[in-house]
């Protein structure tokens, strides 16, 4: 202690090591974030779907998941969104009230997919019609390790927008295409009274 600092309370420019503490902190952060991500990747997505059972998504929209697929518990949001997976393939279907332009939902979904999935190619959008009479717009997309398709159905009368996104690895996409088409074709909208 000095005259200047009788109680030893003034800060001192003494060297000190921070690498042990930094290493501990880095390890804790990486273990926490990496551990959770790894745990999630290694946890199976959910129960197998019950064949031929119609699932309510929300806003009166329902569909029938294909047999052999599993519920995607991480995607499902009651009243808003439902999803199923099969190996690397996934299909999600979201429904919401929509009072805006019929083009906007697909455009927004396309932009969201473009920014999230590092795509290389996006097809031109084209109209489609399901066997049950629904019509909308669809667009395909592909990237280095992904191939997928978006479908948008906007029911202006009932003011509902439905967005379906299905994707898989390019090889697998061809294998599950029939299932995906069947699930899209099964979409129904309960008419409002």
């Amino acid at each position: 202690m000095s005259e200047l600092d009788p109680h030893g309370t003034l800060p001192r420019l003494a060297p000190y090591r921070t690498w042990p503490g930094s290493l501990v902190l880095f390890t804790l952060i990486v273990a926490y974030v990496g551990g959770l991500v790894t745990w999630n990747s290694n946890t199976p997505p959910g129960e197998p779907v019950t064949p031929d059972v119609r699932i309510a998504v929300g806003e009166g929209v329902s569909y029938v998941p294909a047999a052999g697929w599993n519920l995607d518990a991480a995607t499902i949001k009651a009243g808003e969104k439902h999803g199923v997976t099969r190996e690397a393939a996934a299909l999600s279907i979201a429904a919401k009230k929509w009072t805006g332009s019929p083009q906007t939902p697909l455009e927004r979904a396309k932009q969201a997919v473009l920014s999230a999935k590092e795509l290389r190619h996006v097809d031109a959008s084209r109209p489609f019609q399901t066997a049950s009479g629904f019509s909308g717009t669809t667009v395909g997309y592909s990237g280095k390790s992904i191939q997928g398709r978006l479908w948008a159905i906007v029911d202006t009368k009932d003011q509902v927008a439905v967005i379906i996104d299905a994707h898989a690895t390019p090889n697998q996409f061809r294998g599950v295409k029939a299932d995906i088409d069947a699930m899209v074709a099964s979409v129904q909208l309960e008419a409002t009274p």
Partner: peptide
């Protein structure tokens, strides 16, 4: 995201 997904799965 991982915790949310795990909450849904588990």
């Amino acid at each position: 995201d991982a915790i949310f997904a795990l909450a849904g799965k588990l």
